[in-house]
Design a protein around this nucleic acid. Structure first.
Lengths: 226, 226
DNA sequence: GAATTATAAATTATCAATAATATATAATCC
DNA sequence: GGATTATATATTATTGATAATTTATAATTC
């Protein structure tokens, strides 16, 4: 893990911890590290050619993100999600996303709403492509981008920060929603949501987003608990 | 910072990081560290007789809690809250607390609701005492305990975790609500809230909690931006 | 004197080594 | 043989020292 030479004089200088965090997170998403598996500081230090300290910090970051559980002096493990964990999570996420729709429609004027709609439209096109070729990974990114765009429109940083902690996009690898038909259906749900947002129909949009997220949740639960 | 002898063989062993975190947080709440002030790792290490590492981790914790901002290689500062930050924060908090009321009333049977009510009643008594003697600090603790009790009743861990990140109890030191009269009024608001919860009147309770939190927010904003 | 470049000081980021703690394994006792 | 105690091993928590980086100060140039 070299540094110094090739790295441009970037102002927001990268720091080991971040790279390590991303590497471990990738290992989790890729399924190399499965729920319940231990994450051993010294192992990753050796693996990545760094010392224990930065690895520790990276693991703490993942802990704050809810991906990892740590017990003092015993160590860290990839968090195991129970069905209840997932339900709790989606419950809160629905709550936050409903608020984001209300707030966004409240504060955007017609021109801004049109901009948002066109941005959402672009995302939907890409999402459609992902659904067509059954690319779950990319689809999940689009899905996150869609919902995030609405939250961004509220310009509420706190809302964004908390939402990121309970959008479980990262856990997609265990999801059961893999077939193209499911993805296509999901994409159509977003299409409908976009139209309702554009029409400033808060009630309908909130209801649609609730249905959508509940559906995701069910797929998730089936994936985790087969 | 001794350890070892007096500490009981507690299963959830304390670790330096936590003590340090609490100490620094106290310094922030007590106003020793004001918004914008730097938090220097080596200073606190010397101050507390520990090394730099645990202090670093403690600061990272505070960062995750939103109390501190860090830029790589430059250091950490106590976060400065703008009026917008506070509004965003309370907006989300209202959202989460409204959900907690709905969910709690939804899942508790009559006996459980009675238990919750009596617990809330106890807290209110203590709160009344705090208001009487104008003890803002203790009052704030009671206030947090009250709202937290409702959230605990939902048994939704995610809700609890996110709520803790946007309950700004910790920032009370800059609050303008110091006179006994204000505290008394706040306490009465909680009394009313308790009655509405006990009566399972979701709509009224949600409305009351919105008013209450909005009032807190206004006091907060006045305190920050005099 | 203003701008620019060197130098020094302060601070963070990382490392390598050690202490503290927990878990696994072997030895002992009954 | 099963329970209990010692021993060894693995891992985390902490330390003290060093490298990397930024900020402040002095020297230089025009």
């Amino acid at each position: 893990m070299e540094r110094g030479s090739g790295v441009p004089a970037n102002h927001q200088r990268k720091v080991f911890r971040e790279e390590i965090r991303n590497t471990i997170r990738e290992a989790i998403f890729a399924g190399e590290l499965r729920p319940g598996d231990r994450i051993i500081e010294t192992f990753w230090a050796k693996e990545l050619g760094v010392s224990q300290g930065p690895v520790r910090e990276a693991i703490r970051d993942l802990e704050a993100q809810g991906l990892v559980e740590t017990v003092p002096f015993k160590g860290s493990r990839v968090r195991t999600l129970t069905e209840k964990d997932i339900r709790d999570n989606y419950g809160v996420r629905i709550c936050l996303e409903s608020k984001s729709i209300r707030d966004a429609l409240d504060r955007l004027d017609d021109r801004e709403l049109e901009e948002l709609s066109s941005r959402l439209g672009e995302i939907l096109e890409e999402m459609d492509g992902c659904a067509g070729r059954g690319d779950l990974r990319a689809f999940t990114e689009c899905d996150a981008a869609f919902h995030r765009a609405v939250i961004d429109a509220t310009e509420n940083q706190v809302l964004l920060r908390l939402w990121e902690q309970c959008n479980m996009r990262n856990w997609f690898s265990v999801s059961a929603l893999t077939d193209a038909k499911s993805l296509k259906r999901l994409q159509q749900g977003h299409q409908r949501l976009l139209e309702e947002i554009r029409a400033r129909d808060v009630r309908a949009a909130v209801s649609t987003v609730e249905d959508h997220l509940t559906g995701l949740m069910d797929g998730f639960i089936r994936g985790v608990q087969p």
